[in-house]
């Protein structure tokens, strides 16, 4: 497997979607290619960073305000029967 092929298959490798033969070829390439090992490690870290840091819950006053606004809309629609 070449570096270009490894990068093409990188997400499938991370997601464990490669067939046995390709997965083995990827592992063999990674064992001997420092740059691709870094690409794999840093891509995995990118995914973990995203999962841990990019979820943005709606909290506090804004959450309460939004629910209150929705209740008003629903109440109006119930009254008008729409």
């Amino acid at each position: 497997m070449t570096c270009t092929e490894l990068i093409e298959y990188l997400s499938q490798y991370i997601d464990q979607e490669l067939d046995t033969e390709l997965e083995k070829a990827a592992q063999e390439h990674l064992a001997s290619c420092h740059n691709c090992s870094i690409a794999l490690d840093t891509t995995k870290k990118t995914i973990t960073l995203g999962r841990l840091a990019l979820a943005k819950p709606l909290t506090g006053v804004k959450r309460e305000k939004l629910y209150s606004q929705l209740q008003q809309v629903f109440a109006q629609q119930t009254e008008t029967g729409s």
């Binding site: 990068i7 740059n35 870094i38 840093t42 870290k45 960073l49 840091a53």
Partner: peptide, 24 residues
Amino acid sequence: SIMPSSLVDWRFEPEQMLLEEEIH
């Protein structure tokens, strides 16, 4: 396909990195 051009070792684990506001 996108070939990575910047290949530096980040050294730290994500959980450690997120202690820094700058990383966010």
